[in-house]
Design a protein around this nucleic acid. Structure first.
Length: 278
DNA sequence: CTTGTGTCCTGTAGGC
DNA sequence: TGCCTACAGGACACAA
């Protein structure tokens, strides 16, 4: 499930491949993969488009094109991007952008929940309003205790559910929110507004550090292999997970001896150590 | 406005 | 062996 560190890794590894390239032909294998405009309009407008750079906002990957346009990708749960040779066609390829060097950018998304959008920069359609409403990035400027306190204060919802809210912590998903809460020693079920100032400070710092570590290790590839880097290598952060996916296993904090538990909140799982996290 | 729930989608794991 | 169900989960629509 690509979250901020995974999308950032894709951005860094794809950028040199796309530099100076043009799209010759866009092929849409599954219509539902196109979020805006229509598959036909996207195909027509993309013909000959040149890549100018690769950016990222939260979990969105943004390819800047010529004439002020942007090709925006969202991987959702299982998407990934890779540059492949002419004759290579990855399984679950949903869209393919042939490049002028004979290779192709392939958008692979087994579950077809991901989307690709072609838009005018700064003029986003309703389908992308989530991207505009996004809050501060935990890896960027302005994400500190004061910012987080403002977002969490007075809220009765669980701190976990608010960390997943992209208007609060853009780029954070299920894995990194659980890991950040572990580092901050806070239970995911705690009402957000009930955190002390010190806890909010710890949480802000933990989010920054866990995402930075995720980027350093090129993201998290779970045993299901849902996330892969553009060269189809695995990330490395799964080796550093303290709680996520470790239900029933021993807490990794030295001298703790607790057992990781899993709670279902809404329809998603949260993992935590009941001894370390209060 | 806030909060919780259901839905999208499809491959895979696990049960029987 | 093979079928069937539950599950994964980010974002959003919608209800209370």
């Amino acid at each position: 499930m690509p979250e901020l560190p995974e999308v950032e890794t894709i951005r860094r590894e794809l950028a040199p491949e796309l530099k100076g390239r043009r799209v010759t032909v866009a092929r849409i294998r599954r219509r539902d993969i196109v979020g805006h405009p229509t598959p036909r309009a996207l195909r027509e407008r993309l013909k000959g488009a040149a890549f100018r750079g690769l950016g990222r906002k939260g979990k969105y990957l943004i390819a800047r094109l010529d004439r002020g346009r942007e090709l925006v990708f969202h991987m959702r749960l299982s998407g990934h991007l890779e540059v492949v040779g002419q004759d290579e066609r990855p399984r679950f390829e949903r869209a393919r952008f042939e490049l002028d060097d004979g290779r192709a950018l392939s958008f692979v998304e087994p579950r077809v929940l991901g989307k690709v959008y072609l838009v005018e920069a700064g003029c986003y359609p309703p389908a992308l309003r989530g991207m505009q409403a996004m809050g501060c990035e935990p890896v960027g400027d302005g994400f500190d205790r004061a910012y987080l306190a403002d977002k969490l204060s007075g809220r009765k919802a669980s701190v976990k559910s608010l960390l997943l809210d992209q208007r609060v912590c853009c780029g954070v998903g299920n894995i990194y929110s659980d890991e950040a809460l572990f580092r901050a020693r806070i239970r995911p079920t705690r009402p957000a507004g009930g955190l002390s100032s010190a806890e909010v400070g710890r949480l802000a710092r933990s989010l920054r550090s866990v995402l930075a570590d995720g980027i350093r290790w090129c993201g998290t590839t779970l045993s299901d292999g849902r996330y892969l880097r553009p060269g189809t290598q695995s990330g490395g952060f799964q080796r550093h997970l303290k709680v996520f996916g470790r239900k029933g296993e021993k807490c990794r904090r030295r001298g703790c001896g607790g057992t990781v538990e899993r709670v279902k909140m809404g329809n998603r799982n949260s993992y935590y150590c009941p001894r370390c996290q209060r």
